[in-house]
Simulated assay, not measured.
Amino acid sequence: MLFLGGLGRSGTTLVERLLGELPGVCALGEVVHLWQRDLRDDERCGCGERFSACAFWQQVGKHAFDGWANVDVDRVHALRDAVERTRHIPRLAASGTPAADVREYAGYYSRIYTAAAEISGARLVVDSSKHSALAHVLRAAGDIDLKVVHVVRDARGVAYSWTKRVARPETDGAQEMTRYSPGRSALLWNAHNAAFGLLARRGVPVRRIRYEEFLADPRAALIRLADFAGLTLHPTDLDFLRPGHADLRVGHSAAGNPMRFTVGRLPLRHDDAWMRSLPAGQRRLVGAVCGPMLRAYGYPLNPQEAR
């Protein structure tokens, strides 16, 4: 399976949607949120149906747990709180046999991935949960052939995105997506990205991609990702990519940003609004906090050089 990781607002949903158009790929969205948003809150799947009415997810639940009613959501939440937090990464990354609670928590995800692959007939399942701690947890599942795509975006663009008000369509506009201050998002950007570097040092195959480069040539980027995931593509497999946009089919993302509901034409354009709209003081703050890693990832510290 392929895990898409990185701090939120880095472009993972776009990468997931485009990967999901490839033959043999089943894109599941952010499975980490399935337990609350779908099982408890019955929010809408990417196909537009409520989770409880989505035939795909109901089949997955039947195959994985003999029905979603058999999942102890309270237990899953307790396990998540005990092991799947950024502060637990040093323990998760330690060598030796993973703790029993880590293996138990990873097992829930393993059963979903296996069921989704069998129901869809896919050779590759994609989880865009993003969370670095969850990626470390999945190492504990011996039956998961884990590969990770680490999606990086300029920290200043990420910071600007976190300041914007974005309605959550699955709540019919009643709720907005979480917002962070630039200082908070800068600290999170450092922590999450460093955690994926640690994951690579623990022997997990990790491929880092820069969101900006992905958008510049999505066709070439998808070919490279498919090769990394062990998929062989034919030229016609990328016919959904057009100059400046992609044509998307209905998907079954369990959770994620509003792009998961997009069907049909999806514009593919570089978003550099942060260069104009993020106040200079906040740009300098984020640049100072994230400077070493920005340089390591090839981003110029002078925003004008990023144009």
Score class of each variant (00 low, 15 high):
D143C: 05
V151K: 03
A115Q: 07
D143F: 02
V15R: 02
R260Y: 05
A220N: 09
R208A: 14
L222H: 10
A195W: 01
S52R: 15
G48M: 09
L278V: 02
R168D: 13
V31W: 08
A27Y: 04
C45L: 07
A55D: 15
F196L: 13
R210H: 01
D237R: 01
Y109S: 01
I223K: 06
L18G: 12
A280Q: 13
V83A: 10
S185M: 05
D72E: 11
D172A: 13
H252M: 07
E30F: 10
L199G: 08
D247F: 00
C47Q: 06
W68I: 04
H150W: 10
F228N: 10
E16A: 09
K147A: 12
A122W: 03
F51P: 06
Q36W: 08
V206N: 00
R75A: 11
S181R: 04
S120Y: 07
R249G: 15
Y105W: 03
V137F: 12
S128L: 02
W35N: 05
S120G: 12
Y299L: 05
F214Y: 09
S128P: 08
A255M: 10
L198I: 15
Q58M: 12
G24N: 07
A296C: 05
W35I: 10
Q175P: 05
A273V: 02
R103H: 03
N190K: 12
E118T: 15
V137H: 08
V73K: 01
L233D: 14
P243T: 04
H63N: 05
R44N: 11
A191E: 12
Y109W: 08
S185Y: 03
S132K: 00
C47H: 05
R265D: 09
Y211T: 11
E30P: 04
G203D: 13
A194P: 00
A122D: 07
E21L: 10
H88F: 13
A221W: 11
W162D: 04
A133H: 07
